[in-house]
Amino acid sequence: MRLYATHHRELFAYVMALVGDEHQAEEVFQDTSVTLWKQFERFEPGPGSDFVRWAATVALNQVRNYRRVRGRDRHVFSESLVEQLAADRAALFEEDQSRREALATCLSKLRDVDRQLIERCYGEARSFKQIASDLGRPANTVYKALNRIRAALLECVEQTLGLGGDA
């Protein structure tokens, strides 16, 4: 369980990337979690066995199921794109921890007003649209601000990691 607790957010990021929608990702992720829970005994920790990769395989299967069942009534990525994204994303698991650390540093470098907006939008269990309405600002303005801040954060993270950025 500790393994799961440590890695479940990376798995969520993986599922979200493959599904491309947060609410749908939650649905797939819950199925994934339950499946992992049931199959956990099949996973043997030790050298050469990577929990995240094993769990990602389980998650990928759940995404495939989801595509099959829900692909009719919702737009989902094509099968070949899902497989490609899965392969690309799996190669990035090793970076997750350093990205997380870099993000913490980059957040502290934001202007106060930007950081407050991010904290508000991400900290509350409400849609960005509603937060915009609370702030008395048009939703579109808040979306644009969020896009700008995320792009700046991503650039900062990549520079911190020495990857260069183009955001």
Binding site: F12, Q84, L92, L107
Partner: peptide
């Protein structure tokens, strides 16, 4: 573009984790 997309989504989920994690 795929690499950018994946890193962007990761950033988005990490932001949520980090900020909600405090609460």
């Amino acid at each position: 573009a795929r690499r950018r997309y994946l890193n962007y989504i990761t950033l988005h989920t990490q932001l949520r984790d980090r900020i909600q994690g405090m609460a």
